[in-house]
């Protein structure tokens, strides 16, 4: 599997660490809502189809990416930095590719 890191370009999956379901919402730090914490820590969407997930390019730029990947076919339809403010940096790489 290849994941196109917005900074590093397409790289082999071996360079990435899967960080799971990207739909999870962390409650406010001071929240005492145990249901919300439980949902955040333990519950997963786990769809059969497109999945919004977080990967870290741990063997590259170490940035975290938000990846939409199909869990039935492993096709990746989008990747972006999990940090929105880095996505402008990615432009250059995207242009390299095209």
């Amino acid at each position: 599997m290849l994941i196109t890191c917005p900074y590093c370009g397409p790289r082999d999956v071996i360079e990435f660490t899967y960080q799971g379901d990207g739909n999870r919402q962390r409650p406010q730090p001071a929240s005492q809502n145990l249901d919300a914490w439980n949902a955040y820590v333990y519950d997963r969407l786990n769809p059969a189809g497109d999945h919004n997930e977080i990967w870290q390019h741990s063997g590259g730029c170490r940035a975290h990416l938000r990846v939409v990947r199909n869990t039935l076919t492993h096709e990746i339809s989008s990747t972006a930095f999990a940090r929105g403010d880095h996505n402008s940096v990615a432009r250059h790489r995207a242009e390299d590719k095209s």
Binding site: D43, L45, P47, A48
Partner: peptide, 19 residues
């Protein structure tokens, strides 16, 4: 292996499981 899929049919969207 398909728990997520089948439970979704029962209206349960999230589970403490990843496939």
């Amino acid at each position: 292996g398909s728990t997520g899929r089948v439970m979704r049919l029962a209206g349960i969207e999230t589970m403490p499981i990843e496939s």
